[in-house]
Nucleic acid binder design. Structure first.
Length: 587
RNA sequence: CGGGACGUAGCUCAGCCUGGUAGAGCGCUUGGUUUGGGACCAAGAAGUCGCAGGUUCAAAUCCUGUCGUCCCGACCA
């Protein structure tokens, strides 16, 4: 491609609404442009990268035995009602109406559609296992689109769905996808690692997310340096808080004492009360199905809402409003407690975090503004319905596996593999006759990769102060030819010759044929990040040489008649380095 | 959904407080000189100041509403 014939709208300055580096470079390198919040047009260069990521994904999915299909983005709400997600996913569903006022759903994902297909077409164990995938546009009504392609209203996703006859089969399918994902991200030049993930409302199954470490990521990952444990903070567990929970009973009954104006854990921890946070019980009120649910945590712990949601089995819950709290508890936030005989209604469901097991001599709110209770022995004084893990792990706590201190870092979620079980197959009637003649629901898994997000994650990970540094495998072009002289001069003529030879050899070449000064071309070259630049200038040409300049690497003078061969081998080596298969092959 | 900030030329921004002829840099067009890391000179094109009301002799500027964008929050009672 000739630069002058393409459309590469580079920018010297970043638009002010681009906050993070990958978003800025996405725009500055002319890869895409914003139409409006959360919606982007891909320009030619960006589309080439997108297609390359998609190709890698397709190759690896095919290799793993998955079958490509294409499902409608416009979907009937009935199947969403059947699966129950018309309600549980209502916040992210875009809906549209046609001229007869019938409602449609714009697909945020496709479990309902693929399971409908499976329901009608899969009848026998002999047809299983099957794994279908597609690469398509998805729609999500995000609360807050941000960071360019990272969180958009419309994005490209690869979604795959496996169907098996048994749980063991489903695990094998899961494992195949897990391995395929590992290969996909490696081939994209991404450092991505799997972490245990929250299964949320779908239930206690099995799930991993593939994370790209980045300060700008929206997820927090808890990990052990031994490499033996890594989990999304929504899922992560530890051996417990560093400070032990007090378990020595004072023997006394709960005693009410005045705490005027004290409505925070910190205030109660300060003089004159000086009750350490870890000797306090924090009482939170949530609203679930219009009913209050009390959630108990140790004073210095933080609720993990994902864990709470998993326990409640629904995403349709929220923190109660101050008005609801006063009505339910008879006191305002800051004075709440769950001690049974101080509660207005002893019937409310009470969930307590495991960190509070055996807690004695605790202090908590008295359900009366301006008063707290001390000498509270949890299991004596509070009727707890369910003990469960609800707290958020903190850095430095001991790893469950190794006992070593856990660390926390931010990351971008680029892929998610999920063992679904029979949730969808049961609701949408995907059943088959097994060897024993019994009708059984298919055992499913689902597997997603955010394609557009992956593209931006590569930029987030592969850049320097001058611009993008594309891995060879996903670069929009493999080689950039930069003649430094004006059109028609010997440098331009030689560049044309290289262009023809390299193109004929199957290399993807961009030729900067613009009549610009060298410095200008170099700046643009660094910005768009083509992995190998070949500079053809009069100075080196006088010595019979041209210059190979790997992006982010050292300049290498090459005799001009050897250049094409050197370029070819450089490209091949760079590609081979990114291919896990060839890396494993003994050379 | 709550809070905050910002909407002025394609991009980055000044002007607004204190109302009175719409500005700069980059980019763009034309000509010339340049040509190994975002050149220089000259001439030019380009903005209903987000939109709608209001106040005023007069509004980019003050007021109200609205739309859009970005940031923070939407556990810690």
């Amino acid at each position: 491609m000739l630069w002058s014939k393409s459309f590469i709208p580079t920018l010297k300055e970043a638009p002010s609404d681009a906050e993070i580096i990958s978003h800025q470079l996405l725009l500055r390198a002319g890869l895409c442009r914003k139409l409006t919040g959360g919606l982007y047009t891909f320009c030619p260069l960006g589309l080439r990268v997108l297609r390359k990521v998609e190709r890698i994904i397709r190759e690896e999915m095919d290799r793993a035995g998955a079958l490509e299909v294409q499902m409608p983005a416009l979907q009937p709400p009935e199947i969403w009602q059947k699966s129950g997600r018309y309600e549980t996913a209502r916040d992210v569903l875009y809906k549209a109406k046609d001229r007869s006022n019938k409602e449609w759903v714009l697909s945020p994902t496709a479990e309902e559609v693929i399971t409908t297909l499976a329901a009608s077409e899969i009848n026998s164990y002999r047809q299983l296992p099957l794994n279908f995938y597609q690469v398509s546009v998805k729609f999500r009504d995000e609360i807050r689109p941000r960071f360019g392609l990272m969180r958009a209203k419309e994005f490209i996703m690869k979604d795959a769905y496996s169907f098996d006859a048994s749980d063991e089969g489903a695990m094998a399918s899961y494992r195949r996808m897990y391995d395929a994902y590992t290969r996909i991200f490696a081939r994209c030049g991404l450092q991505a690692f799997p972490v245990e993930a929250d299964t949320g409302v779908i239930g206690g199954n099995y799930s991993h997310e593939f994370m790209v470490p980045a300060e700008t990521g929206e997820n927090e990952v808890v990990y052990c340096e031994s490499g033996q444990y890594a989990a999304n903070i929504e899922k992560a567990a530890s051996q417990g808080a560093a400070l032990p929970t007090p378990t020595a009973s004072t023997g006394a009954a709960p005693e009410r004492f005045a705490t005027p104006g004290v409505v925070t854990i910190e205030a109660l921890a300060s003089a004159p009360f000086s009750v350490p946070a870890h000797a306090q019980i924090k009482t939170l009120v949530y609203t679930v199905d219009s009913q209050p649910v009390l959630v108990l945590l140790r004073g210095d712990d933080t609720l993990n809402e994902a864990k709470l949601g998993g326990r409640l089995g629904t995403p349709l819950f929220r923190a109660a409003t101050p008005e609801e709290i006063v009505q339910a508890m008879g006191a305002r936030p800051g004075s709440l407690g769950a001690v049974t005989n101080t509660r207005r209604n002893a019937q409310y469901r009470v969930l307590a975090d495991l960190q509070l097991r055996g807690a004695r001599g605790m202090t908590t709110g008295a359900n009366e503004d301006g008063f707290h209770l001390r000498h509270v022995d949890l299991e004596r004084d509070i009727r707890v319905d369910e003990w469960t893990d609800l707290r958020t792990v903190r850095e430095g706590e001991a790893c469950v596996t190794t006992g070593k201190p856990l660390k926390i870092r931010r990351a971008i979620e680029v892929g998610h593999v999920f063992k679904l079980g029979t949730k969808y197959s049961e609701k949408l009637d995907s059943t088959f006759l097994d060897t024993d003649g019994q009708r059984k629901p298919t055992v499913m898994g689902c597997y997603g990769i955010g394609v557009t997000r992956t593209l931006q994650a590569v930029i987030e990970q592969c850049h320097d102060k001058d611009g993008i540094v594309w891995p060879m495998s996903v670069a929009p072009y493999q080689v950039l030819l930069t003649p430094l002289g004006a059109p028609g001069t010997p440098t331009a003529v030689l560049a044309d010759q290289y262009y023809r030879e390299l193109t004929a050899a199957g290399v993807e070449v961009l030729l900067d044929d613009r009549d610009e000064r060298p410095g200008f071309k170099f700046k643009d070259a660094d910005l768009i990040g083509i992995p190998l630049r070949v500079s053809i200038g009069e100075k080196s040409l006088a010595k019979g040489e041209v210059e190979l300049k790997p992006r982010g690497g050292a300049l290498e003078p090459v005799r001009k008649e050897d250049a094409v061969q050197r370029i070819l081998s450089h490209v091949q080596q760079a590609l081979a380095k990114l291919d896990p298969a060839s890396a494993q092959r003994p050379s």
